[in-house]
Design a protein around this nucleic acid. Structure first.
Length: 264
DNA sequence: ATGGTAGAGCATCTA
């Protein structure tokens, strides 16, 4: 990785305890400068910070134990760490949001609530959560800053980001209200950098259900996103979903997404 | 055949 570019990656690992060796191995060949993980399913005390330190990375983790959990792993110095929302509202019961400055960029990693079904109470939580995310950004930064908001959004931006719009369980991930929240983040000043690098390609997914052989049938969705402000998006030269990392024994149900950004 | 798998942890919840 030449020093004139910074490589950012995001990966929902579905338990860092189960995926620790696989993540460390992936890092040795993908060589991200900044890696955000979701669904670590770890308490902070169980986070394997030493493994990442030995590989040359600083790390911060925001977890609760059994579910959720997000972390930020970086070769660049990590400062200004904020766990959860900074919007002035009540604390989130669930560990889904972590913000920090890595070098000169503000990195926000998210594990957006799944929603379960559009008529479920959890779906309302998802919509409120996405509203709060925008307020969180307003509280900490502006769209003229170098900001990356990445992670598992549990929303597919467009119909072409889903293998079959009619088969999406419970109608979540593709509903108009969720996409409207994504649109509000875009209106705030964030851009889907992966889509910008691949404007015309379809069937590019980042998640495949473990069940029913969906990965091998390529029945997936693109729900893991690298959103960034214009100053970052304009310098994004490369974007990739690493499907190789979804193969082999004991994979996560998500593939990592990475982008290379030219240095200023 | 209206399910299927995986991870938490030990009955069932979450995705």
């Amino acid at each position: 990785m030449p020093a004139d570019r910074v490589r950012y990656a995001t990966w929902n690992v579905n338990s860092l305890k189960a995926r620790r060796e696989r993540v460390l191995e992936w890092m040795t060949h993908a060589e991200p400068d900044v890696l955000c993980l979701q669904e670590t399913k770890l308490a902070d005390a169980s986070f394997p910070a030493l493994d990442f330190a030995a590989a040359g990375y600083e790390a911060v983790h925001h977890g609760e134990g059994r579910w959720n959990g997000v972390c930020l792993i970086s070769r660049l110095p990590i400062t200004d760490v904020v766990a959860g929302f900074a919007d002035g509202g009540p604390p989130d019961d669930e560990a889904r949001l972590l913000t920090a400055r890595c070098g000169s960029s503000l990195i926000v990693t998210v594990y957006v609530p799944n929603g379960r079904a559009v008529d479920h109470e959890h779906y309302e939580y998802k919509l409120r959560w996405l509203d709060r995310l925008r307020d969180h950004l307003d509280a900490l930064t502006t769209a003229t800053d170098d900001v990356i908001v990445c992670g598992d959004f549990n929303v597919a931006p467009e119909d072409r980001d889903v293998w079959n719009i009619d088969e999406v369980h419970g109608g979540t991930h593709v509903s108009a209200p969720e996409r409207a929240r994504l649109g509000r983040l875009e209106a705030w000043g964030l851009e889907d950098t992966f889509r910008r690098c691949h404007p015309d390609e379809d069937r590019l997914y980042s998640w495949w259900d473990y069940r029913a052989g969906n990965f091998h049938k390529h029945k997936g969705m693109r729900i893991d996103l690298m959103m960034a402000t214009r100053s970052v998006a304009d310098r994004t030269r490369f974007a990739l979903i690493d499907r190789q990392a979804r193969k082999g024994s004991s994979p996560s149900d998500h593939a990592p997404v990475l982008i290379d950004v030219d240095a200023r």
